[in-house]
């Protein structure tokens, strides 16, 4: 219990960010026309690719002779990059067509 309280105290700011972000996410999405649901899902998919930053940090921290960590980290960065880059490109392609037909 003490550990839990200490953890909470230590990370109050982060926990605030979490709570506020939850409300923000709900707020932002609730007014979306259904036509945009799919591109939005795809755009959100690209945004959670931000996990790649964690992968980069892991990679950057690994000792150059720690081969397993390097290999796993390398893989993690590749996967994260595909998530980010692919996600944004697919979303853009989707929205490009919406644009085209509006004219």
């Amino acid at each position: 219990m003490d550990t839990l309280l200490a953890f909470f105290h230590q990370h109050t700011e982060l926990i605030y960010i979490v709570i506020l972000s939850i409300f923000l996410g709900v707020e932002v999405i609730s007014r979306v026309p259904s036509v945009l649901h799919t591109p939005l899902m795809s755009g959100a998919n690209a945004i959670h690719g931000v996990v790649i930053i964690g992968a980069i940090i892991v990679m950057g921290k690994a000792e150059p002779d720690n081969i397993p960590a390097l290999i796993i980290g390398f893989l993690a960065v590749i996967l994260g990059t595909i998530n980010v880059v692919g996600g944004f490109v697919v979303t853009d392609r989707m929205l490009e067509m919406f644009k085209g037909k509006k004219k």
């Binding site: 982060l14 972000s21 923000l24 996410g25 959100a44």
Partner: peptide, 24 residues
């Protein structure tokens, strides 16, 4: 991951998608 590295951009990005994705 944002918690792990005390990294606000991972935290906001991840949680935003988490809550928005749930609503979606």
């Amino acid at each position: 991951g944002g918690f792990l590295y005390d990294n606000p951009v991972m935290l906001t990005g991840g949680i935003l998608v988490g809550s928005a994705g749930t609503i979606l």
